[in-house]
Write a protein that binds this DNA or RNA. Structure first.
Lengths: 184, 184
DNA sequence: CCACCTTATGACACGCTGTGTCATTATGAA
DNA sequence: TTCATAATGACACAGCGTGTCATAAGGTGG
């Protein structure tokens, strides 16, 4: 009987929906999954990871899109184009939008989980920073831009999750639009 | 013997600097302050609050500046002017810059504390949102803008804290500059 | 088929955070 | 002085996340 982390995560998501996030303990989840609490921690390093872990492919895809955009190295309005492409790239790798919406709603409703966005998106922020630096953006501007970029796109995901629109792309594009890039 | 929360906070700050943040327990701090752990929790609702609590006056002053800016209701480039003024307003109420730098460095060095920025700045984000809404900015744009605004200015504080420059104002102004406001 | 090694597992204990409860102790007003 | 009110801290508790360690599972070489 091989253990499937995805199955455990969706099981946890169900328990959270039924009983509430903070009223569901890691022990409850472990029991329901038929494993020990310690084993559960081997697959998910924290309770928040049960939720945020599922968003990782989305974040990774977005990061990959940035690397690709850097190679293309289009200049002119290319700065914006790269960030836009990266913001939207995550959408394509989501297998089931409604599941992701469930995760994001949970995140939106729990400040403790939403706060984790800062840490969860840190690698992505760093990638974006290097991307901008490589394109000649000054260090401080790149730092501020990336902070703003990730906060705005995260807010876009939150807003999409709160509603019922099927497509998150317009939200993400609108979010990127509040940025002012140098020389654009 | 009246208890002074500020004294306890700076005492905690000292212990954190000496022994490290996570290696200093709430019990250690309570013992050093000569009070019980429960009493410590009455003054500071969490360990992070020992650090973030000291930044509250700064955040409050920034919020107040926004309200004032709304009354002034200057149009044209006024959107930017209001946000710029609010970002900078906090600096004036800091009694000792080096103490705040200490706090912010601690925050910068501990992801757990930095993550809390999302929650700690939420009231300010909401004030900024209402400010922009009152000035006619569309709801979604206001949401993205405020998320970006607070993330960028927080990043500015982090960068100022990491260095040795005495004045945080240039950092904050540069941060606001990455925003693109409608009709500006 | 068996002995062996390696890795996964979970039982147990631990320290810590944050939250209740409740008796005791200041503290100030009448 | 007496009484009401609020602060205090001792105690207990649930939960998170981590360490240790004996056991079990599963694959490998004889």
């Amino acid at each position: 009987m091989t253990i499937d982390p995805d199955a455990i995560a969706s099981l946890a998501l169900r328990l959270f929906a039924e009983n509430g996030y903070e009223r569901t303990s890691m022990e409850d989840i472990a029991r329901e999954a038929g494993i020990g609490r310690k084993s559960l921690y081997r697959y998910f390093s924290s309770k928040a990871d049960l939720i945020w872990g599922g968003m990782e492919p989305v974040i990774a895809a977005s990061g990959l899109a940035l690397e690709v955009a850097r190679d293309v190295r289009e200049d002119g309005g290319g700065l914006m184009a790269g960030l836009r492409a990266a913001a939207v790239a995550g959408v394509a790798v989501i297998p089931d939008l409604s599941v992701s919406r469930g995760r994001l709603r949970l995140i939106a409703e729990h400040p403790e989980l939403a706060s984790r966005s800062y840490a969860s998106l840190a690698p992505q922020r760093e990638r974006a920073r290097r991307h901008l630096l490589a394109l000649g953006v000054p260090d401080d501007t790149a730092g501020y831009l990336c902070a703003a970029y990730l906060a705005a796109t995260f807010e876009a995901w939150m807003r999409w999750a709160a509603g019922t629109d099927p497509d998150p792309v317009p939200y993400l594009l609108a979010a990127v639009e509040v940025l002012r890039l140098p020389g654009a």
